[in-house]
């Protein structure tokens, strides 16, 4: 019995730094916001308990459903696009040719500046009616397209922009590719496996832990998309990019309805948690951890 007790303690010692931080900096604020979800809280006065009033209001609200729909569409489109392009880029940049470092840096560039103020202005200008993109389109004989000034196109434009910031996911895929031991490829080549076969049997399976990571993170981030909707489109035009977290933010800080906003946060939390758990559950079918290989020749 003493041995297992020691094992548990050891585990907690290792995760200790996170665990303590979690208790102090996460659990308490999260618990507080859960309480707020059932109150009327305007920041400057003490919260007033209102029970399920906020829930009723949320379910009745058109905007709630609309913003949920917009965010889901965004996630559905941007996650595969973002991941797919990041993986392709990582593979292209994993090659050992001269100057590859330069290209890697260039591909990562957007991630450096994506949070800066200039970029929002720049996007608006690039996608404006007489901006660079339309200049290219008309240059090859196509009609002008309205991007951010059309309720039909604004959301897809944001999806496209999101793919451009593939730097982080790409970097992680790169690290994942780097971790695959070269000897596996070498012995496969010796066994006569072609490039595609090598990709399918070695690269892809061994990348699955990382793919899982990027997938889960992608879902979490896509469902919480906020920044570009805030600085570029302000939720418009005609609420076509009114993301869920943007709705939440306005309820909290523009209309001082922090109690209701807290409920919105927890609803999102539950949705994302569900999606993540589903993904994790499915992962046992397609994710390959080398840890699980017991003995045997590779």
């Amino acid at each position: 019995m003493g041995k297992t007790w020691k094992r548990h303690l050891e585990g907690y010692l290792f995760i200790g730094p996170w665990f303590i931080g979690f208790l102090v900096f996460m659990l308490i604020p999260a618990g507080w916001s859960l309480y707020l979800a059932f109150t009327d809280f305007s920041f400057l006065k003490p919260p007033v308990w209102t029970g399920t009033e906020n829930v009723r209001k949320m379910l009745d609200s058109d905007v709630f459903w609309k913003s949920l729909r917009i965010t889901s569409v965004y996630a559905l489109l941007s996650v595969p696009l973002h991941l797919g392009t990041a993986l392709l880029a990582a593979m292209a940049l994993n090659v050992k040719i001269r100057g590859i470092g330069f290209y890697r840096t260039v591909f990562y560039l957007p991630a450096f500046v994506s949070s800066s103020i200039g970029v929002a202005i720049m996007w608006k200008m690039i996608f404006s009616d007489s901006g660079v993109v339309n200049a290219l389109l008309t240059g090859i004989g196509l009609d002008r397209v309205k991007f951010f000034n059309s309720p039909d196109n604004a959301l897809y434009t944001l999806v496209g922009i999101n793919a451009w910031v593939l730097g982080t996911a790409m970097l992680i895929f790169l690290a994942g590719l780097q971790q695959i031991p070269r000897e596996l490829y070498e012995s496969a080549k010796v066994d006569g496996a072609g490039a595609v076969r090598r990709f399918r049997s070695i690269t892809l399976p061994l990348l699955t832990p990382v793919i899982l990571f990027n997938l889960i993170l992608g879902i979490i981030n896509a469902m919480q998309v906020f920044t570009n909707g805030f600085v570029i489109t302000r939720g418009g035009p005609a609420q076509s990019t009114y993301f869920y977290v943007l709705y939440l933010y306005e309820e909290a800080f523009k209309f001082f309805r922090m109690g209701y906003a807290s409920l919105l946060a927890w609803v999102l939390f539950l949705i994302v948690l569900l999606l993540t758990l589903l993904t994790l559950r499915s992962s046992s079918a397609w994710v390959f951890y080398e840890t699980e290989m017991k003995g045997g020749k590779r």
């Binding site: 094992r7 548990h8 050891e10 585990g11 907690y12 290792f14 995760i15 996170w18 665990f19 979690f22 900096f25 996460m26 308490i28 604020p29 999260a30 507080w32 916001s33 707020l36 920041f43 889960i216 993170l217 979490i220 919480q224 906020f226 977290v245 939440l248 933010y249 909290a252 800080f253 922090m258 906003a261 807290s262 946060a265 927890w266 999102l268 939390f269 994302v272 948690l273 993540t276 758990l277 994790l280």
Partner: peptide
């Protein structure tokens, strides 16, 4: 390592990324 509550805590770990920070700002 294997320890009591590991899977639950792992999900809790992921969960910390799922709550928008706007609503934990005041208590934090």
């Amino acid at each position: 390592l294997r320890f009591l509550g590991k899977n639950v805590l792992f999900v809790a770990l992921l969960a910390t990324m799922m709550l928008p920070t706007q609503v934990t700002l005041v208590p934090t």
